[in-house]
Design a binder for these strands. Sequence first.
DNA 1: GTAAGGTCTGACAGCGCTGTCAGGGTCAAG
DNA 2: CTTGACCCTGACAGCGCTGTCAGACCTTAC
Lengths: 115, 115
Amino acid sequence: MKIGELSRRTGVSVRMLRYYEAEGLLAPQRTDSGYRDYGPAEEETVRRIKMLGSAGMTLETIQRLLPCVKNNNPDFRPCDDLRRILAQQVGLIDERIETLSQSRTILAGFLSSVN
Amino acid sequence: MKIGELSRRTGVSVRMLRYYEAEGLLAPQRTDSGYRDYGPAEEETVRRIKMLGSAGMTLETIQRLLPCVKNNNPDFRPCDDLRRILAQQVGLIDERIETLSQSRTILAGFLSSVN
DNA sequence: GTAAGGTCTGACAGCGCTGTCAGGGTCAAG
DNA sequence: CTTGACCCTGACAGCGCTGTCAGACCTTAC
């Protein structure tokens, strides 16, 4: 399918689909005229990227993760990293939550002192 | 005092002190030769900016807040906004925490499925 | 053949800071 | 008077996307 249709089906903008490719997360076939030609596997990949992205991951991180998430991937080497990366991401998120909680405390303190 | 000293005393970079000014949060005197000349009030303001900033607030938001936080400010009008802004910020933080929590859940799910 | 709509690449802009560099004055001490 | 440390302004860059626009080609259908 062409990029417009994939965009409609995944809810990812055409701009971002091209960006994914530029960042090495996607490598669709090309028609003779140079149009990108995506298959079902690519569509699935886009959905995965979208999900990981919604989990706050950077495209760069997703890229490192992607090879491990592919169906029936027999290459376990990079997947040793998988757990490490995921755990690291969870740690990052925990840090951010902690920071935000502190901010919340500060602001809430201000709030109550204004009452 | 000059900008370098203020920077040392507050831990805010010279670059950022000038940026605060550019954004309208600070308006130090100037010497004849054009040097910025900060007084104790300014130093205090910088500390407030720093604290509010560490609470995750945008400089623009801080700017709106600042007039209300100044000592003995007789102008109560803008301070009606104070509570509103603070509450709004707390709401924003809560949203972000919520989003991060969801991300955490997604990633933790991945993690456990990899075990 | 022509028009509409889709696609291509490349580039600029914006978010909110923050560092850094260039080119040029100022101030203090020796 | 010279040197070194400090200050000034203005501008470029980077983070990680994301939108948008320009100029040009492709495709489909009438």
